[in-house]
């Protein structure tokens, strides 16, 4: 096995180190994360790739403190803005979620609350973290929707998730996640299940927003095409381990780990090493 290449990023926004854990009472059996270590560079797009079940989602959820019930972290630290998130209590974590770190999930329509209007969900989130007045929150909510290129914002504010298409709903989910200006955005397969053209639109929007706001983005995806096109840094995972970390360009040109080569070959994108 090839030792993961050490990243020498000067000032990473996220430093995950030795993250280990699993399900079951002791987090030993079955173990789903084994000594996961990687860094997410600041202000750029990174990707976590790997086959189904390799632990990508659990890793991202652990970062935001929402690992599923039953998952126990047995070891490791999550460095973010000078703190180890692994040591935070619930309240401290709640203050960070949504405001410093946000996450967008796969099925956007399911991830919006069907019984509250889009405007309410946005304004409530903004008020949660800023405590501004209702009217200020509504204005900020409209702004957030404009920011993700949703047309006819005034009318959309009053609508409910079932009145949005998948692509539009994913924009709303992005607006929600970005409404309190987080520094780190985690995206767990944000475009899976959308039409190809809409996937491309949403990806373009994500890239544009990250450039505009200097946002650090960690994208979990199966789509190596997207990685090659947009991402600077790649973390490759397999059965709970990080097998390779590299700049995207290097990875596509000369994948070091045999598993990475397999992945690239399977996606018919690279692997000409």
């Amino acid at each position: 096995m090839v030792t993961p290449q050490a990243t020498t990023e000067p000032d990473p926004i996220l430093v995950v180190d030795g993250l280990t854990g699993g399900f079951g009472r002791t987090g030993e059996s079955p173990q789903v994360l084994r000594d996961v270590s990687f860094q997410i560079p600041r202000g750029r797009l990174s990707a976590i790739v790997g086959e189904t079940g390799s632990g990508k989602s659990i890793t991202a959820l652990s970062v935001i403190g929402l690992a599923p019930a039953g998952f126990t972290r047995t070891r490791g630290s999550i460095g973010f803005e000078g703190r180890d998130l692994a040591g935070l209590d619930d309240r401290q974590y709640q203050a960070i979620r949504g405001s410093r770190i946000a996450m967008v999930f796969q099925d956007a329509r399911a991830s919006l609350n069907p019984t509250f209007s889009i405007g309410y969900q946005l304004a409530a989130t903004i008020r949660r973290h800023t405590g501004v007045s209702r009217s200020a929150a509504r204005a900020a909510a409209e702004e957030a929707l404009v920011g993700v290129r949703i047309p006819d914002v005034k009318r959309r504010m009053k609508q409910y998730p079932h009145q949005f298409s998948g692509g539009m709903a994913q924009r709303v989910a992005l607006a929600l996640a970005l409404s309190c200006r987080p520094n780190l955005l985690l995206l767990d397969e944000p475009t899976t299940g959308l039409d190809a053209t809409i996937q491309a639109d949403v990806m373009d929007l994500i890239v544009e927003l990250s450039e505009r706001d200097g946002l650090s983005v960690c994208l979990i995806t199966h789509d190596l095409g997207v990685v090659g096109q947009h991402c600077d840094h790649v973390v490759v995972m397999r059965s709970g381990r990080v097998v390779e970390r590299a700049d995207a360009r290097d990875l596509f040109e000369s994948p070091r780990h045999p598993y990475t080569r397999q992945l690239l070959a399977a996606s018919e994108l690279g692997g000409h090493a």
Binding site: F105, S111, N113, R128
Partner: peptide, 8 residues
């Protein structure tokens, strides 16, 4: 899960 991820 989304509501939790937003810090509520």
């Amino acid at each position: 899960r989304t509501a939790r991820s937003l810090g509520f």
